[in-house]
Computed example of a mutant assay.
Amino acid sequence: MEWLFAPFEVSFVQRALWGGVLVSLICALAGTWVVLRGMAFLGDAMSHGMLPGVALASMAGGNLLVGAAVSAGVMALGVTALGRSRRFSQDTAIGLLFVGMLAIGVIIVSHSQSFAVDLTGFLFGDVLAVRDTDLVQLAVALGVAAVVSALGYRAFLALSFDTRTAHTLGLRPKLAHAVLLGLLTLAIVASFHVVGTLLVFGLLIAPPAAAMFWASRIPLIMLGAALLGCLATGTGLLVSWHWGTAAGATIAAVAVALFFVSALASRVRDSRTTTEEGIATSS
């Protein structure tokens, strides 16, 4: 029991746990829609698109979250604008902006040797360095994400399955898509400081995808994703403490591992169900 609970008696590990839990809840709300709509590549591009804003904010001594939000917003607007062209698919627009924004960020970073350490934090996060002010910011972000998810639920649901139906019902799919991009941006910007941009998708994608094996209703998927994200956070911190591994990367790795465990368990369940139905039919 001491092996399980001793790490969480340390104050910075407690803050890391709370930070990871808050990030898990935010990512459960946004990540469910990302998985349903197949927006993972867009989210990945947006997370890397934050680099120029974060680099400029760091060099100017400004707020990194503001710089990240502005840069991710520019990325989202660019993808939306280029995605309207009929000459190429939206994936092409995402790929172009992904490479362009990342290249600009690296160019900016290359002019500041002192930014190298901060770049590591940007990519991989530092969950063990979460401060009380970070927890407050995450709590506010969670409140905003919850309100947006509740108010936009009907429009997001229609948009996920049939854009034409959403338009017919007067749900304004273009506005709903823009708001959904805003929700995704909020989740990424709020989370990158904790687990980093390269690892944020461990909590944004894996828990909702794992929950979809066991639930079909969206609120239940969100609940399952939140529980799995919290489990990944606690387990990742525990493993990191005892094995001396990077905390953010360990949390993300556990989240992905939970997805594969869930997929395997679901396959065993389906196989057993099929066998039982076959026996019942033959008898």
Results as ranks from 00 to 15, higher is better:
77 L>C: 13
87 R>V: 12
108 I>G: 02
74 V>G: 15
56 L>A: 14
96 L>D: 00
52 P>I: 02
18 W>P: 08
77 L>H: 08
91 D>N: 13
34 V>I: 15
86 R>D: 08
22 L>I: 08
21 V>S: 09
81 A>S: 12
24 S>D: 07
48 H>V: 10
29 L>H: 00
71 S>N: 06
41 F>Q: 10
55 A>H: 00
49 G>Q: 06
83 G>F: 09
97 L>C: 07
56 L>H: 02
51 L>R: 03
70 V>R: 11
53 G>V: 08
111 H>R: 12
80 T>M: 10
46 M>S: 04
105 G>I: 01
93 A>M: 12
96 L>M: 15
77 L>I: 13
23 V>I: 12
56 L>F: 09
63 N>D: 15
40 A>F: 06
92 T>C: 10
77 L>Q: 14
34 V>L: 14
68 A>H: 03
44 D>P: 04
29 L>V: 06
23 V>L: 10
86 R>M: 04
27 C>V: 08
100 G>L: 15
25 L>F: 06
19 G>S: 12
40 A>V: 14
48 H>G: 04
90 Q>K: 14
64 L>I: 13
108 I>N: 01
68 A>Q: 05
22 L>Q: 05
83 G>R: 12
59 M>R: 09
44 D>I: 07
100 G>V: 14
38 G>Q: 11
66 V>S: 11
71 S>A: 15
27 C>E: 04
